[in-house]
Simulated assay, not measured.
Amino acid sequence: MTVPEQPTLTDGVVTLRRWTLEDVEEAVAGHDEVIAHWFGWPVDGVTPERMSQAIERWHTAYAEDRSEVAFAVEAEGKLVGSVDLRRRDDGVGELSWLLFQGQRGRGFATRAVRMLADFALSEDRQGGLGYWRVEAKVEPDNQASLRVATRSGLRREGLRRIEQGHGDRDETASYVVLARLVSDPPLSEPESFRSLLNSFLPRKRAIGQLLVRDTAGRVLLCQLTYKRDWDLPGGVVEVGESPRLAVGREIEEELALEIDAGGLVLTDWLPPWGGWDDAVCLVFDGGVHDASILDAMVTQPREIRTAEFCTLDQVEERCADFTARRIRAALAAVESGVPGYTESGR
């Protein structure tokens, strides 16, 4: 296969061009402790000899099979950094970039990464690499690089955990994985921008619960298999699911009861606890029923040991303190007719 000559790419502000040995001195001078920190090498680890070797390696890799494609980044007539792409799998490349001392925070990296991603995802017969996916692995604390990646059109996919001795580095590390696919809409389209925001904006877990009482004023509680204390019936809201409908689904799945969820009576924010991230618990009104409705109950044995109508004294005895506070707050909201808001039941 004939490999096309490495092109020069530009968006009118930033230019990506082939590295030359004339760039060595300027590149070495631009490396500093910020670059050394994020790439994991000594501050004085980039020498003229090593930089020259890297350029020769890039030239060879491009000429042979384009398994590694590296560009010098120019802006305002100066060498400001580097951007490269290494083939990881068939049709998949991993992006890396850096800006030299004094050149950060001016948008050069975003432009460079976007242009290289466009080049990688372009069809091979048009001179591009013909990849179907480009990705980047960024440390969670590297906020500047996370901004560059997302502004370049890479969607956040998740956190990859690496155990000590089993990753690219010796120490335990985690990487945020961000990627762009050839099938993603163009960055100029509103759908693409919304999908990009959706990939990295914060998300909270939602929990739906049902406040069901009997004619004696007792509250329906479930004894769970995965924790010692009791709780209101309900569960986690699935992706794309209505919280109100989720409650009805959970009651039917776990207790084989059909109880319609009424209006929202309480919103309770749950802070991080015991390995869980924070969450929002939405308590809906399950109405007042005769205690005999439990005669038809069939518990889901994997999650529910049993369920009973309990007095407030039993609520205090059987529930965690924050659950008991939530139940009292929900009952007060039902009595007042005004939906309440609490944080950990307070």
Rank of each mutant, 00 (worst) to 15 (best):
L197H: 09
L294F: 14
L201H: 10
E252L: 06
R104P: 11
T267V: 13
R302T: 15
D65A: 15
R205Y: 02
Q209P: 04
I259Q: 08
V3H: 12
L312G: 00
G93K: 01
Q6N: 11
L16T: 03
G275C: 12
D11R: 13
A117W: 05
A70D: 10
S195H: 05
L257I: 04
D260N: 10
R161N: 07
L9I: 08
P272Q: 12
G262C: 14
L211E: 11
S192K: 00
A54K: 06
L159E: 08
S183G: 03
I293C: 00
A29D: 03
V212E: 07
E241N: 10
S82R: 15
N142K: 00
E253K: 07
A117H: 03
A307I: 02
D184S: 03
E26D: 14
F309K: 14
T323G: 04
Q314E: 15
A75N: 11
L178N: 00
F309D: 07
C310W: 06
Q300V: 05
P339I: 05
A261R: 06
L245H: 08
V13T: 09
D184L: 05
T225S: 10
V298G: 04
F193K: 13
V338C: 02
G45E: 08
V34W: 05
D89K: 11
T323D: 04
R156V: 03
R104I: 13
T47F: 08
L294C: 10
G105W: 11
E191H: 03
L282G: 03
G274Y: 14
E189K: 06
L210K: 06
